[in-house]
Amino acid sequence: MATILGRRTDFILNLWVSLFVLWSILPVAVTALTAVGVSPTTFAGADNGVSLRAFSAVFADARLMSALFESLLVAAAVTALSLPLGLAGALVVRDLPVRGAAPLLVLMVTPMLLPGAVVGLSTRLLWQSLGVEGGRGPAILAETSLVAGFVTVAILLRLASLDRRLEEAARDLGAGPARVLRRILLPHLAPVAAPISATAFLVSFADHDATLAAGGRTLMVEIGRHLRAGPTPLADATVVLVLAVTALLALVVTRMRRREPTPREAAPRP
């Protein structure tokens, strides 16, 4: 299939892809080099030598470490809040006629379309008028408004593969809504529960703009403060560490996705 577009086009395509890959990797490679104290232009060690000192400095930085803890706390809260909201949202949207479902769905994903600073500021202003100053609470709520819409869409996509006749049959046989949820909907969603939760957690963990505007002090906000101060080996080492951890998590999430059964396996149709 490699020559599907013709030999000459293929050559241009290969060249383009090679340059793009180089362009993508080069800045990260330079950052990794400077993190260990190697000059990227001369490949010579810096004055104070090649070392992993910057990496141990990251773990010794009390503010970064407490920000990491804050990030984990906030991301756990956001995940715990947005999963039930997303499930409820998906159930409501699914049972509405398209004419009613579309505007509701648009409202749910609206925060994802807005500038992060606007989402954070508006949440902060609402709670300020109720006497709660910016900080952890507004940050959690601002991030939840970003994540819940995404969870809704993900659950909707999964529910599309569920045979509605199963629910109808259960209801005809006298099952209440709670029972249908427990025995049919939740088991059908079980295979995607882990990847959706992991993605929700990651989105919350990686958010910078909304959290900053809402007054949160998560790891990304703290790293942003470091990066704005200027390029330092500490900032470089932080970037490399976050890169390694995110790559690892992304790998785990893709593995989870791959293991999830196809719709055909999950809901056999006659």
């Binding site: 950052t31 910078h208 900032a235 976050v242 890169l243």
Partner: peptide
């Protein structure tokens, strides 16, 4: 490189 968030990519 794609595993990096926009903030960190900007720094790189």
């Amino acid at each position: 490189p794609f595993a990096l968030d926009a903030l960190l990519r900007a720094h790189a």
